[in-house]
Design a protein around this nucleic acid. Structure first.
Lengths: 200, 200, 200, 200
DNA sequence: AATGAATGAGCCTTCATTCAT
DNA sequence: TATGAATGAAGGCTCATTCAT
């Protein structure tokens, strides 16, 4: 599907980054269908034609964006696992997390990708693979809480993990349904719920 | 410009329903932009031109779909409020709610509408107005729990309400991210979280 | 082309008038193509379908409008011929004529009809027949000036007549090219030119 | 939105000319609304889509046609002003002018543009701006006659100028009302009228 | 590696006209 | 005589994608 078969020179890599950056911004502002390749090309500072030397087509760009974002999540999971008290780390990170996922720009982009996944099988595949990976990391993280305390991991750990990501995906949706959402008031409630999920 | 101010003959009402049904299906399968008016017309069993005697434009159709769904939610809220024990009613309804919002077909449509709202101000307005109404109903319902027990409604009631809808919106998103989600395992976790939200 | 084959009941005649009146107004405001039959029907206070019981099609309506306007010109020509001093009558009528033909509403309609004639042979035929008739009346009127004075009618009488109508058709065009035209200043110049045309 | 700000490569200039030529012909034959972009594109020998790389929209094409015609008039005005005897030059040019403005093809196009101006404000603006410029040139030319003879310019010079263009616009209309018009007979009458306008 | 001219399919929407009632 | 629901062809315009240079 994509051109990664080729050696991918550093030069080309940098050009790809430019396109990804430009496309993220355009998708955010106009949506996947609303943003034209011409617009993305202009934002990226190159010709429309050349984008097709770097990506197979428009879909391929969205795939690359998802892949890139996934690595950011990887880093977050690593960071929390490295901390001594995972439970505390997660509760603390919840604050930042609420702000991140409800940021209007990033929320619009997420929904855009999700909607495209809802109908485009190729995009769905990419998104679901990324999600499976993130879920595994999260479940591992959650399990650590019980393991480090020498207690048995609850049998519904998978469902608890699911609920964890459900909340943050839900918040992303809320940013669109209710842009005036009171982030400061919501954060403590999120923490209360997380706490409930981390108890036996 | 909008002829829909007219009393709306029963005949026209029925025709509108046909269009709504057809459009829901098409949007689900192809997305808002992916579904053409010609396709919707064909599915609805009428000519493209005639759709414009029933709706102002494509956006107007999505507006009507949202409105129609909203009335289903109205009914649910009414039902729960009418029950003697709101807390129990909500916990019980959670089971069915989880299944409803994660139904693949309805989830795809919801995401489609939400994505369109993310970039189309008119659709955003419609969706946000419906959400505000639903939120008010929900908060009223939640407050009832404390009021009927003669205890003071918690000051963070709005944030709790927000969290309540967040969870269900999140589940809708999960249906796409993780179609294999184990609904039976998740439902009890949802109930556990709801219970936490309904305590002081 | 039109339905005048039928007996044309007085009732139908009145209905036709309603349509003509409505269509004139709509064409004026939106142009021949810009005005929809639905709009004309609404303005005329009847259903779109019924218009087709009174006129064959949209073209037929414009034909009827032209025919109706022609009779107004007939009356003017009659009036001037009846006056003792045709030369004076024409010079005097020039004032009012300038205002009439540069009236923005009627100018727009005239141009609309003319443009349609420029490409629609049927309309062209109607318009040209009406013009031929008007030209004959005008030439007759102009000739009277010399005849009553017992002098020979100039051999270029047809060209002078042509110039006479040219000026008024030109003024109609000017109303669009230059809506701010100073009618009061132009009228005397028109009179000066007319005077030149009425001399040997 | 309008890419025509670009320096406009010679290549693009040539392509624009092709479109203008094709559109003139199509508008002439079918009218502004009657001529489809597909038809214009085919006539111009390019794809419909590409026309939109050269012009903003259909209106923009008519604007360019008007601008192009305007420059021809500019040249004529320059030429006459450069001649020693403006009065003679104008009388002499009248002959050619009569033929030009009554040429059936160009007359139909002019009427088409004028009719569109009668209902489309954007086109009206373009046409009126061009007319204002032409009027200024004409008035300047006319004034020269008195100035060069050391006599005071008449106070009704603006109205005389208006009458001058009125006659030629009128002739254009006549070409449609009366295609059989005798150009050779009319020209001397036009000259007689012009002479009257150029006297004190 | 890079451009941007060029394509052409396809979309939303309008509207003259018809016809069952 | 009168309605207005219904049709379906056509139009302006956009845009992902290609290709000669």
């Amino acid at each position: 599907m994509n051109d990664l078969d080729r050696p991918a020179s550093p030069r080309a890599q940098a050009r790809r980054e430019q396109v990804l950056e430009a496309a993220s911004e355009c998708f955010r502002r106009k949506g996947f269908h609303g943003a034209s390749m011409a617009e993305i090309a202009k934002t990226a500072g190159m010709s429309p034609g050349h984008i097709y030397n770097l990506f197979t087509n428009k879909e391929d760009i969205i795939g690359a964006i998802v892949a890139r974002d996934q690595s950011k999540l990887d880093a977050i999971a690593q960071g929390m696992k490295a901390s001594g008290d995972v439970r505390a780390a997660m509760l603390q990170h919840a604050r930042i997390g609420v702000s991140d996922v409800t940021d209007p720009a990033s929320a619009a982009l997420s929904q855009e990708v999700l909607a495209e996944a809802g109908r485009n099988p190729k995009v769905a595949e990419i998104v679901q693979a990324a999600d499976a990976r993130w879920r595994a990391q999260l479940q591992d993280l959650l399990s650590t809480i019980w393991l480090r305390e020498g207690r048995p991991v609850p049998p519904d750990i998978a469902a608890r993990t699911e609920m964890l990501t459900t909340i943050f995906k839900g918040l992303t949706a809320r940013a669109i349904y209710h842009p005036g959402i009171d982030r400061d008031a919501v954060a403590p409630v999120v923490q209360r719920v997380l706490a409930a999920l981390m108890q036996d």
